[in-house]
Structure formats: structure tokens, C-alpha cells
Amino acid sequence: MSGRIATVRALAFRGLNEVVRVPGAAIPSLLAPTIFLLGFVSMFGNLTELPGFTSDDFVSFVLPVMMLQGAGFTGAATGVNLARDIEQGWFDRLLASPAPRPVLLAGMIASASVRALLPTSVLLVVAFAIGADYPGVVGLLVALVFVAAFAALAAAWGIVLALRFKTQSAAPLMQAGTFMAVMFTTSYAPLELLTGWLRAVATVNPVTRVIEAVRQGFVAGEVSWALTWPGLVAVAGLGAVLVALALRGMARSGR
């Protein structure tokens, strides 16, 4: 058992090399969510004037979206990196070892979860500086747990695609998938204010529950079980499906 944990840790650390050991490589992914936040607030900040908008502070309202967006792109990058590892033959090294496949998967996913906390930290600092509401310790912790979990989901998604296509050319698919998952929700406005098709999509999109769970602390200033458990269920459900698909992809990688 301790050997398996060691494997997960070793693979997660290797994943961190991508940001720690390549000079400058971390900067775009570190800053992108913050840039998005500033841009969105500047452009759409006046949406709060619409009757029925549940918050008068657009920064606090979209901050959770940008946190998850950053986590999503970090996860997608894990998929792109796996595709590169497959192309270059590195992944064969892992597959030819007796390490259990779920352990290999856990290692890659864990690195995404840890990496996702970097852009989120930058984002939070900037957001608080421009007036986002402090969600309280519990609210912040809940948000961070969901951010890490969502990065894991996005990583699993990227891994599924990487195992399927085995080429970095699939990168836009990985990124677009997580982008849509996060944005086709109550990302810009409460459900009631979304127009036709987006309202329909956001209603059934499980990521809407995740966003609402992260958002509760920032917008309402308190955490309630009623807004938390749907998020947990959404993460668990998506996780079960994506992990199963990823494991299937691994098992079939030599077919």
C-alpha cells in the first residue's frame, strides 16, 4: 500500500516539473484565469443592474467561475502532457511496469489537483484586491476542495481523450470540453436571467451545481449543506464516469 502511495506521489511530482522546471511555462496558465476575471468584470460588470440579478457584486459572482476555469485548463494540460508522453514513448515506461493502472491514473490526476491551486491562489489575491467578498474560512476551504476536485475531473477528461487519440493534436478538444463544461452553466448570471438554450443546458449541466457550491461562500457569505451536497454529488458522478472511461482507455491502450 505504501508503495502505491509512493508511486502516486512520484508521478504527481513529475507532473509538477512541467511548471516548476520550465522557465516561464507556468506564467500563461497562472495568469490566464486572472486576466479572464478582470476582463469579464470590466465588460459585463453592469449585468448586475438587470432586475433579478442575485448579487450586486459581479466580482464575487464570477470569481468562482474563473477559479473552476483555471482548474479546468490545468486539468486539460494534464491531458495534453499525457498525449505528449504517449507520442514520445514515455508512457510505455509506465505501462510496462507492474504498477497498478489505477495508481498510474491517480498519480497523473493528483498532479492536476495540486497544480490547480497555483492559478487559483493568484486569482484569489487579485480578486480580494479589487473588492471580492471574503467567503470566510469554511467558504474558502469548500471552494478550494471543489477547485482541486474539478481539476481532477478535467484531468481525467483530458486523459480519456489522450488515450483515445494519442496525439497532442487533440489538445483543443480537451480545452474546449472543459471550457464548455464551466461556461455553459450559471457562469454569467443566475439561471433565471440566462437566455433560452443556455438556460436549458445550464439546468442539466452538473457543473452548474459545482459552481453554485463554490459560489455560495462568495455571494451569500455562508456555506449551507443545501448548496454543497449537489456539488459533491456532481463531482462524484462525473468522477465515477470519467475515471471508469480513463481506466478502460488504459486497459485498451495496447489493443
Binding site: 508503495g3 502505491r4 509512493a6 508511486t7 512520484a10 508521478l11 513529475r14 516539473n17 512541467e18 522546471r21 520550465v22 514520445q88 514513448g89 514515455w90 510505455d92 515506461r93 509506465l94 510496462a96 511496469s97 507492474p98 504498477a99
Partner: peptide, 27 residues
């Protein structure tokens, strides 16, 4: 297994690779 065109991670050190390999084999 040492496969064609040694697939090594340029960002790792030699020692790290050896330790990772040992870990993968649960030593």
C-alpha cells in the same frame, strides 16, 4: 524494458528517473 529511442523525460534528473522506476516496481 529499454525501448527504441530511449523515452526519457528531459526535465527529470538521472537519479529521479532511477528512483521513479524503483517506485513503479514497488521496491
Amino acid at each position: 524494458v529499454a525501448l527504441q529511442e530511449a523515452a526519457l523525460d528531459p526535465l527529470m534528473t538521472g537519479r529521479e528517473l532511477m528512483l521513479l522506476q524503483a517506485t513503479l516496481h514497488a521496491l
